[in-house]
Design a protein around this nucleic acid. Structure first.
Lengths: 341, 341
DNA sequence: AGTATTTGAGCAATCGATTGCATATTTATA
DNA sequence: TATAAATATGCAATCGATTGCTCAAATACT
């Protein structure tokens, strides 16, 4: 078959009208009569007409593509956010290009470049952990291209953003640990510049303060927050002989590592040490015992992010006020923080 | 700023040559002198020229976009395959549009439609579990658009595909269980039409046969293979009073569920029952005990799939022989199948 | 020197849809 | 019944890059 390419011209020809009319009819332009629209639609169906988005993108300057940049699609949180974004985007007839930075600054820069080259109408991004320079994002803003950041944000950019209340999540978790009797709560955090870890640390500190528990810097372990790092952190605590009865980790992965090390040392969870993570990665519910964690409301976050994005898009380059949305996280209490007898 | 749009015309003007020459120079066309090329490249850099892929796509009919359709990007296996694909694609200056079917046939059809509408140059896909009708893929083939399937394939389509040797993986795993002393090995599988589960079942059966262990249909549990299904399957076995000393599950998720139920029943792993999964999802290494599983070589699979795809692309619609690549899986032996004393 | 080749570059059409600016036909208003 | 206003459609340029064809100049070959 000859590439079944029906164009608006073919429709026009059959109907003895012009392509402009067909184009307008298809776009439901009010200047076209209902009758003509009906005819055009019918003929379009009959010819199995498929609009050529490329042509339309070229002329209109709108590609109907959104670039989504995430550190990795492989994390439940990110893939769920993406799903939320897709839900909204697809409703509005936009497609989503996902690209992954793998927490690599260099790749992040390249990906932004590539997305712009693909002529996306805008970008939704979550910043890689190791990114400390934000010029590539600033460039996007400078070009007047809609940009929304979610979760991994920075305040070095004047940009719309959607986050959860990391402070609150951390505060609630720490409070919960205190309420189940913990007095020496270790905290795993990251030395990286991204806000989320700082906020979680702050929530932890404030909860301690509010409940009259002294903050002890010895209980803070900084790392890259992967599973292996969690193991190392836990081994550090144990080897240094530091006394602790709980760990609140800013990452589920790290707390998982900690749990492994505890088990190897025959230290029981939750009896001797209670554990809480952050992120509600699926595996936290699989483990024995299942791990208390903070749900980041990923799908709502995706939807809100997309909505914010589309509002920005509507402004069409006109500078509006940047929106900053903060979603409430949810503490998911599981066995790992069960009160000991 | 005025959308900093430098076009080939701008370059041409500055250099007092025509756009055609610029275009050819940029594409390294042999009909253009080295000298001119050098000048063009220099001016392009100077004007910060960014090629408009949309325009080029319209004219050339090549969008340099590949549509990748996966059930969910949220699974380590799929996201790793995607990563492998991206690696190769980016090297060749192609971008990847990921779209997720969420194992929903309807969404799968829509996504294929959307990808075609986005004028991707071709599609790489893994079929959703619930898909039993393949017309939408056939349509892609009929249009002469390159299509490569990986992992979740079907033999109802005449198409290039990349899989791992599921049979071998299952055979090796079963053999391993037999070698560590198991005689009553249950198998979790799916009733779905996709090949992978059938092949794994076949590998399981053949290994039993080769080692003189009778096949017992009572030991086969069919389900959708999610964590919950694994729980149910395990409960079924226990409730029916079926004797078994191992489970080989075609899914890591299901085996995880089984492990939970075993623990609840105070049945120890690996002493009383040994467990093996399939997929090498990261969490299988987190659990206590870590679970023996089969690694599906996801990144190589992605790379091979992409390579197959690009070969197809080179044929440019000319019917070549469909390639079928089978990769060797790797049995990852962990504590859950440790020989009992 | 005279014709044949090769080399380098320009012209203009094209990809398919969109859109500002007419124009023609009705309908409404004075 | 003119004239203004509204309605429905056409014309032609345009988005930016690509490409078949043509042509001039330079080089090669009897």
């Amino acid at each position: 078959m000859k590439k079944g390419k029906a164009t608006i011209h073919d429709i026009a020809e059959k109907l003895n009208i012009t392509a402009s009319t067909v184009s307008r009819a298809l776009n439901d332009n009010p200047r076209i009569s209902e009758n003509t629209k009906k005819l055009v639609l019918k003929m379009a169906k009959q010819l199995n007409y498929q609009p050529n988005h490329i042509a339309s993108a070229l002329r209109s300057g709108k590609s109907k593509l959104i670039g989504v940049l995430v550190p990795t699609a492989n994390r439940n949180f990110f893939s769920s956010v993406v799903r939320g974004i897709e839900d909204i985007a697809n409703e509005l007839d936009y497609k989503v290009i996902i690209s992954q930075s793998y927490e690599d600054s260099e790749k992040e820069i390249q990906n932004i470049e590539a997305l712009l080259n693909a002529r996306v109408d805008g970008i939704i991004a979550s910043i890689g952990k190791n990114t400390e320079n934000f010029d590539h994002f600033q460039k996007v803003l400078d070009k007047g291209i809609p940009l929304v950041l979610f979760d991994r944000i920075t305040n070095q950019l004047d940009v719309s953003q959607v986050v959860i209340d990391d402070y609150q999540g951390a505060y609630d978790t720490t409070k919960h640990l205190i309420e189940v009797g913990c007095k020496r709560i270790a905290h795993f955090t990251s030395p990286k510049k991204i806000n989320i870890y700082k906020e979680r640390l702050r929530g932890y500190e404030d909860a301690l303060k509010d409940f009259g528990i002294p903050f002890d810097p010895e209980l803070i372990e900084e790392s890259n927050m992967q599973l292996e790092d969690g193991r190392t952190s836990m081994e550090n605590l144990i080897n240094k002989g530091i006394v602790f009865d709980a760990v609140f980790s800013s990452s589920d992965y790290a707390v998982m590592g900690a749990m492994q090390v505890l088990r190897e040392h025959k230290i029981t969870v939750p009896d001797q040490v209670k554990l809480a993570g952050f992120g509600n990665e699926p595996f936290t519910s699989f483990t024995a015992p299942p791990i208390t964690t903070v749900d980041q409301k990923s799908i709502p976050m995706g939807r809100v992010t997309a909505e914010t994005f589309f509002e920005l898009l509507k402004l069409d380059g006109k500078k509006g006020n940047n929106q900053k949305t903060v979603l409430k996280p949810e503490l998911i209490i599981r066995e790992s923080t069960q009160k000991s007898n």
